[in-house]
């Protein structure tokens, strides 16, 4: 083997982009919450995991009802998952974070880690700790490259992941940039106290942020359960960690940053598992986090964090 062929390189880019899309979707939830209330929402990974479970259930349910059209499956699954995780996002914020607003920084952080532990074990009790798997819904793909040599493989699912991610990201960008509520969101992340004085219901904006973040996490969850067809109560932990890394990488608080960070992390990980040992792909993600914090703490697109007294 030549060791380093262009086609293999291309394949890793495709795999990396797929993975990166998922990370980017989850990372947006972290970055938006951090941008507005300056808190790391540790429970976000768990919300994603719940989204993946709901996705798997709805797809299974639809299969039992005899629905086989890919469009129908996708739309119904996304809608139901978003409804459920959105409710979780709202409830968690309402019950575990809102009463703590204005307390010292450590207090909501510990509450968040408590919620994360709680949700993980709660799903484990409800659904069991073992892997749940299903048959892939969408199979097949395209192959490019010479006969007999290394062929680049792009599955339909990978294309679907890319398309859906781009669609939701554009939707979010439009919403934040153009709508009235989006403007309120931006105002809150700029200066929450001032926004409040000017008549913006900041509690509502914060709740909306959690719901939006959770909805995107649900999209990621559904896509992952369709792609890998495997879910267990612990997937949220690592995915949350990686997505947070992506958010920091891109500059925490910045939505385009989270998208970019997710893609960069996905690519890094994909190359690491191709050219290094697979077991060490998580180490690469983490090393990247440390490196970014060392060299550029504000991330790729982040603004410097000005401390106010």
């Amino acid at each position: 083997m030549s060791g380093f062929s262009f086609l293999e390189f291309l394949q890793q880019i495709i795999n990396g982009l797929t993975l990166g899309s998922i990370y980017a979707l989850i990372a947006i939830g972290y970055t938006m919450v951090y941008g507005i209330i300056g808190m790391i929402n540790f429970a976000h990974g768990e919300i994603y995991m719940i989204g993946a479970y709901v996705g798997l259930m709805v797809i299974t349910g639809l299969g039992l009802f005899g629905v086989h059209s890919i469009t129908a499956i996708l739309l119904v699954t996304l809608a139901i998952s978003i409804l459920v995780t959105g409710s979780y996002g709202w409830t968690v914020e309402r019950l575990a974070y809102r009463p703590l607003r204005g307390s010292p920084r450590l207090v909501p952080l510990i509450s968040a880690i408590g919620v994360s532990i709680f949700l993980q074990n709660y799903v484990q009790i409800g659904q069991g700790a073992r892997d749940v798997s299903m048959q892939p819904v969408l199979t097949g793909g395209w192959r490019f490259g010479p006969e007999g040599g290394f062929q680049v493989y792009v599955s339909y699912m990978q294309v679907l992941i890319a398309v859906i991610t781009v669609a939701f990201m554009s939707g979010l960008t439009l919403f934040i940039g153009r709508s009235r509520m989006g403007r309120a969101c931006r105002a809150c992340s700029e200066d929450r106290g001032m926004a409040n004085l000017l008549g913006i219901d900041t509690d509502r904006v914060i709740a909306l942020t959690f719901v939006l973040g959770a909805a995107l996490a649900a999209v990621a969850g559904v896509l992952v359960s369709m792609y890998y067809g495997l879910v267990n109560p612990f997937i949220g932990f690592i995915a949350g960690l990686k997505a947070f890394t992506a958010a920091v990488l891109g500059g925490i608080g910045s939505i385009p940053g989270a998208m970019l960070g997710g893609v960069v992390l996905g690519l890094a990980e994909s190359f690491a598992s191709a050219y290094l040992q697979t077991e060490y792909k998580d180490v690469v993600a983490f090393a990247l986090l440390i490196l970014v914090l060392l060299v550029r703490p504000t991330g790729l697109l982040g603004r410097p964090d000005v401390e106010k007294v």
Partner: peptide, 24 residues
């Protein structure tokens, strides 16, 4: 590297470090 920044980063870095240690 981490403590030059705001304290919150320490939480996530140590979380990652715990996971990496288990992996190693």
């Amino acid at each position: 590297p981490v403590l030059r920044l705001r304290g919150d980063y320490l939480a996530i870095v140590t979380l990652g470090f715990g996971e990496i240690t288990r992996l190693l």
